[in-house]
Design a protein around this nucleic acid. Structure first.
Lengths: 356, 356
DNA sequence: CTGAAAGCGCTAACAA
DNA sequence: TTGTTAGCGCTTTCAG
């Protein structure tokens, strides 16, 4: 019947020469389409003569054949593709996480699609509505739990920089946030700081709650006290305002511990507007060690997170889940980068404050 | 024949209850699978009774049905998905470009996949090797032409912040880089600067070549001269080194024009290490108006690029191409952000240098 | 207004 | 060693 093709509804478009299919390659090489599939899929060992295989490869090259992924995905029922959900793009932490995850994905021949949860739009609209590919698994970094609510329940999920408890994640990979805060606190204590203010991020993700808790714990039972906590949106301008409030405390704090380098940058601006020098009059610490930390002057003392390692470990965990293994939670070590924004608490007005 | 199913090679896996298909929905609703497709595809008006449509929707909801995209893509021959290729992730310019493109994509029900060309690995490995989805089109921003060489020749391509001539792009969308540099030059001239150094990015993309050319042209025929050009990798540390060299010129330049805010941040550090105050002793300008520009102190005078608009316009252009229209090249206006890093060229040692 | 059927390009089981 | 064939889930035409 001549009507065989009219069912498809595909207009024959002569302007775009149809992209070659496996059948075209087969015809060109004088073999069957199945042989093409075997050869190009690398499973021809002991099933196809190497001469034929060569012919097929030549034909594919010749026609500039590229397999149709949609067809492959349909047939296989999997796509070998993972989604990485992050709350923001222009942030080295996430770009480093992505780099690590992408490297491991490449090594395992997996695709990785990056989904920046639309900033400002909260909570994230269903990532899967707008994600074009079918996915085998999801990695989510530093996301507030609500933002993941739309997440399709039956996909393997690995969470990064997130609450290890109480989620439906198959695995969690975290930098040791608490240890980072502890190191910050110890560093400041060793420099003689006793009045410490916390510039905290008003973001609903676990990582910031955890930072606040860790700071409080690290200071508890020491001779230093947390004189105030000022919350702010995660921006330089917000950090400036919050730090301005913190510096208005009387007697003023000698050190500002910030939840993030962006906030710390704002804190530095605030200190200077008050006429304070950094670090002689006030010390400032950041968190994350973004590129920004060393772009500032003085450079920020901050906590270096193993972002690439977090991404890589997370991807390995997801691969484990996909292969049916039961990966466990990982906690990766962090480091304190001591730089110019912290110094001895010299000019304290009230020397013998606490004696505990 | 009972063998009908054993051909598929899909092991019946009781642990993962197979995801429901359109047939399941049809069965559940007591209609045919075609009806399901029509209803859920929104093309049922005047073909299916609204009562049936409602039943189908309920059944789909009930089973938590999600259409299999691979099957749809295979059937349709298109994926309604575009790829956005950028040279780096952690850079507001690109994240803003992405935001603009993603917004327009959403409005048109298109998917957008972000492909950060692996930094450090140059030129980019074939994006299509690692891109999981089949693509309908590509948008590339600020890429060196070689890095796009692997690009599959028959995909519609829109280029952003790139050479409008001599490429195979269907359209080009650029911020008016040359005008930006002109404004920088005029601003410095008006402040009395006559000895200007250029801290340029040693990156092979059109945008930086264009910036250098525009600066030279803007200065030509004025009383000011370009005393030197120091090239550097696109990092703060690189900017510091290049600016250090530039400041060693004798007599020294009174202003450092940088190709990018990152370089400008480095230039500021270099100036301070020389003991120069900004802007009293030396003025510094950036380009791009990254968040970094206002995180620094003093804040950078820089060129604000309409990044979101670039992304949005680029996506609209791609949609135009996909729909068979012939979009043309766009040039979007930029603005000079005058801030604290530039000031009058007061303390010039050699007052009457040129008199042209 | 609804159902039957074809076929997108690929993979893998099976036959030859 | 190679070919034949079924079928993944969907959209769309055509018949009823």
């Amino acid at each position: 019947m001549a009507s065989a093709r009219q069912h498809t509804g595909q207009a024959a478009d002569p302007s775009t020469p149809a992209r070659p299919t496996g059948r075209d390659v087969a015809r060109h090489a004088g073999v069957s389409q199945a042989t093409v599939s075997l050869v190009l899929g690398g499973k021809w060992q002991g099933r196809v003569s190497s001469r034929t295989a060569e012919t097929v490869r030549a034909a594919a090259e010749d026609l500039r054949y590229r397999p149709n992924l949609a067809a492959r995905h349909l047939r296989l029922g999997r796509t070998r593709t993972a989604l990485l959900v992050v709350p923001a793009l222009s942030n080295d932490f996430f770009s480093r996480v992505h780099a690590g995850a992408a490297r491991v994905a490449r090594e395992h021949d997996l695709g990785l699609v990056l989904y920046p949860s639309p900033e400002g739009i909260a909570p994230a609209p269903d990532p899967f509505e707008s994600t074009p590919a079918t996915l085998d698994g999801v990695i989510a970094s530093s996301m507030a739990p609500e933002a993941l609510a739309a997440l399709h329940g039956d996909l393997p999920l690995v969470m990064l920089d997130s609450d290890p408890a109480g989620t439906r994640a198959a695995a969690t990979v975290n930098p040791d946030i608490a240890d980072g805060m502890r190191r910050v606190a110890e560093h400041l204590l060793a420099l003689g700081h006793r009045r410490i203010a916390h510039v905290s991020a008003s973001v609903g993700s676990w990582t910031f709650h955890h930072r606040a808790r860790a700071l409080a714990q690290a200071l508890a039972g020491t001779s230093a006290s947390l004189v105030c906590t000022e919350r702010s949106a995660l921006t330089v301008a917000g950090g400036l305002r919050a730090a301005t409030r913190a510096l208005a405390t009387d007697p003023r704090p000698s050190a500002l511990v910030c939840d993030d380098d962006l906030l710390a940058a704002g804190a530095c601006k605030a200190a200077r507007r008050h006429g304070y020098r950094i670090p002689q009059d006030v010390s400032v610490t950041g968190f994350d060690d973004l590129d920004l930390a060393t772009a500032l002057e003085p450079e920020l003392t901050t906590v270096r997170l193993p972002a690439e390692e977090v991404g890589a470990t997370g991807m390995r965990a997801l691969i484990g889940v996909l292969e049916g293994r039961q990966p466990d939670t990982a906690l990766l070590p962090v480091a304190l980068a001591r730089r110019g924004s912290t110094g001895p608490a010299a000019g304290q007005r009230s020397p013998g404050a606490e004696t505990g």
